[in-house]
Computed example of a mutant assay.
Amino acid sequence: MEGLNVMMKAAREKGIFDGIPIPNTNISLSHLFYADDTLFIGDWSTKNVSNLARILRCFHAVSGLKVNSNKSRLFGVRVEFKEVCSRVGPLGCALSSLPFTYLGVLVGENMNKKKSMEADN
């Protein structure tokens, strides 16, 4: 996974993949790793989706590791579901919508609510 981390950092630095800027910093968030899970985070654009698909194909070619498309989902935040449908093709994964659970935490609901942080929802 270190190889994928290096590829994503290089892609971000070269403007190939646009992450999400963290306010009041010079940091742009593009991916998170936890064990064998990866979460890609980026600006909503055709360029980002297409380039992420290319990065993942290159990663597969050099490492032999492949994304499990049965476990992968594409989400659009503040994006119409119809638009998400139009961009999922290059990634070959399923569509989903907010909220969703990631590592036992509900994501995409009002995160200020205590119930959002409870794992048994």
Rank of each mutant, 00 (worst) to 15 (best):
M1A: 06
M1H: 12
E2C: 02
G3S: 04
V6K: 14
V6L: 11
M7N: 04
M7T: 00
K9L: 12
K9G: 07
A10T: 08
A10V: 10
A11G: 13
A11N: 09
R12E: 14
R12C: 13
E13H: 11
G15T: 14
I16H: 05
F17Y: 15
F17T: 01
D18R: 02
G19D: 07
P23I: 07
T25C: 07
N26A: 11
N26S: 15
N26P: 08
I27Q: 14
I27F: 15
I27P: 00
S28W: 06
L29V: 04
H31S: 06
L32M: 15
L32Q: 07
F33C: 05
F33K: 06
Y34E: 07
A35G: 07
A35K: 01
A35N: 04
A35E: 06
D36M: 05
D36L: 02
D37L: 01
T38L: 03
F40N: 06
I41H: 05
W44D: 14
T46W: 05
T46H: 05
T46V: 06
K47C: 08
K47H: 12
V49T: 13
V49L: 06
N51E: 14
L52C: 09
A53E: 12
A53T: 13
R57D: 04
R57C: 02
F59Q: 03
F59V: 05
F59G: 02
H60T: 06
A61Y: 03
A61T: 11
A61F: 03
V62A: 12
S63H: 12
S63F: 12
G64K: 04
V67F: 02
S72E: 04
R73K: 15
R73S: 09
G76I: 03
R78F: 14
E80S: 07
E80H: 13
F81T: 11
F81W: 13
K82F: 12
V84D: 11
S86P: 00
R87S: 15
V88L: 00
P90K: 04
C93E: 10
L95V: 11
L95P: 04
S96Y: 06
S97N: 06
S97P: 00
P99M: 03
P99H: 01
P99R: 02
P99C: 00
F100K: 08
Y102A: 01
G104P: 04
G104Q: 08
V105S: 10
L106M: 05
L106E: 03
V107Q: 09
M111C: 12
M111T: 11
K114H: 11
S116T: 15
D120P: 00
